[in-house]
């Protein structure tokens, strides 16, 4: 999305495009279980709209960078506030748990079923790389293949799963 300045901005488009990105960033940083994440996202977007209406976005940078800066600052403020109250930040879950709702759980089970159907060469890559968390170099050493080949197999596995999910 390219906007030259605040006047040419369609707020509906901004909301539609950036809400998922802002939500993702907030949840990723603060953790999926954080009950405040949705409020913070709303605050950020409200702040963005106010600044856009006030003409604070002059088009010097991309609108994405502008929204990123606001998001980043708000997250830091939140962490500071919580630190004052709790004296420490509760450990953030680095990966949102897909089991946090039924829909995601079903989706995860569907993906799991599809992975089971993959050929062993793709399963082994996914097992070593994602499940065991080995680096590409470590996977390559274990399987006796070049690291570049590991990347190719990982990417091809994603491609296969994507195709299977569409079906």
């Amino acid at each position: 999305m390219n906007f030259k300045d605040s006047k040419s901005i369609d707020l509906n488009k901004v909301y539609k495009e950036f809400r998922p990105i802002v939500s993702y960033k907030v949840r990723k940083t603060l953790g999926t279980y954080n009950p405040d994440w949705e409020d913070i996202v709303n605050e950020i977007l409200t702040n963005v709209f106010e600044k856009l209406k006030a003409g604070d976005f002059r088009g010097d940078s991309a609108i994405g960078t502008f929204i990123y800066t606001i998001t980043h600052r708000r997250i830091i403020d939140y962490i500071r506030q919580k630190s004052k109250v709790l004296r420490y930040i509760p450990e953030v879950n680095p990966f949102p748990d897909p089991v946090d709702n039924v829909e995601q759980k079903e989706r995860a089970e569907k993906i799991a079923g599809l992975i089971k159907k993959l050929k062993p060469k793709y399963r082994e890559i996914l097992y070593l790389y994602y499940y065991k968390g080995l680096t590409r170099k470590e996977v390559a050493e274990q399987l006796g293949i070049p690291p570049r080949r590991v990347s190719e197999l990982v990417n091809y596995s994603h491609k296969l799963l994507k195709k299977m999910l569409i079906k």
Binding site: F95, P96, D97, P98, A108, I111, A112, Y131
Partner: peptide, 11 residues
């Protein structure tokens, strides 16, 4: 990430 999380949870 969807694939990664599915592997982590259903691995």
């Amino acid at each position: 990430e969807e694939i990664f999380l599915a592997i982590k949870s259903e691995g």
